[in-house]
Amino acid sequence: MEPLRILVVDDHDDFRRGLQALLGATPTTEVVGVATNGASAVSMALDLQPDVVLMDLHMPGLNGIEATERIVASSPHIGVLVVTMMEDEESVFAAVRAGARGYLLKGARRPEIVRSIEAVGAGEVIFGPGIAERMVTYFKKAGSKPAPDLFPELTDRERMVLGRIAAGLDNAEIADELGVSTKTVRNHTSNIFAKLQVAHRAQAIVLAREAGLE
């Protein structure tokens, strides 16, 4: 199995070098490029076509959110994993909205960083423990029955499924609650993603939040 090709984007020299050393010593990863600002990150991502971009958010010039949005818009197959000190809800949701598939706080241990990179490289969505817990707690407070005037493009059942997605339930839990098969829930979820034009679950949750599903 070929190692995942990684582009490291961070303007802090020590942290960037630390990531390079960590990934260089990991058999499943290979650093193919390093950028110190958002503009360089976009240019290098388009040129190198890495599997995963490790993206800091706070950088001079073009910030990590804008860089993520441009990279994903041009090369949606590239997975962006945000690695940052910023843990506020606004930053998390903005990163997901821009297309990031993962969000990790600086200070994460080596196994967590490698596991997150491998998950994003495999097309999964992943959040560091603190971030994931915060998101689930927030969305469990959300209502499970969106009003009919929200997302009029969805059917009543799709709105019900979206409400439960926003509340943090997985497909099996939704199937159990609605009394349907997991396959049916997967079909509804695929239809929801297509109609709302989102790539994954986390983006659907952010969209639901911004529409007032609380």
Rank of each mutant, 00 (worst) to 15 (best):
G123A: 08
I71E: 06
I192C: 11
G64V: 02
Q20N: 04
P60L: 06
S40H: 11
P146A: 13
T68A: 04
I78P: 09
A132T: 00
V96D: 02
E69I: 09
F93W: 13
F127L: 15
G79F: 11
V92F: 03
G64H: 03
V83P: 02
Q197E: 15
P111G: 00
V31E: 03
L104S: 05
Q20M: 05
L104Y: 13
T26W: 00
A132P: 01
G121D: 06
D170I: 14
H77Y: 04
E210K: 09
V198S: 08
R109G: 02
E69A: 15
L154E: 12
D14H: 14
I126Y: 03
V53H: 04
M59F: 09
P129R: 11
T182L: 15
I165G: 14
A132D: 06
L46S: 02
L54P: 06
A73R: 11
A211E: 12
D14M: 13
A119D: 06
M160E: 15
E214D: 09
P111N: 05
L23H: 02
M55C: 13
L104W: 07
K140L: 11
A35F: 01
V92L: 14
P3L: 13
D47Y: 05
D51S: 08
N187W: 13
I192N: 11
A202I: 08
F193V: 02
L22R: 00
V31Y: 03
T184G: 12
E69P: 01
G24R: 01
P60G: 11
G38L: 00
E124M: 14
I117P: 06
V198L: 07
G64E: 03
R157H: 14
P60R: 07
A108R: 02
A35C: 01
L150H: 12
D176T: 14
R109N: 09
S75D: 09
I117C: 07
E112Q: 09
Q20G: 10
G64I: 01
K141Y: 13
P152S: 07
A119N: 11
V31R: 01
S75R: 13
G130T: 13
L7I: 13
F15Q: 06
L54N: 10
A67G: 09
V42C: 00
V198T: 14
A45R: 02
E210H: 07
R5G: 03
M86N: 02
M160R: 14
S181N: 07
D156Q: 14
E66G: 06
D56Y: 07
K183Q: 13
S91W: 05
V72W: 00
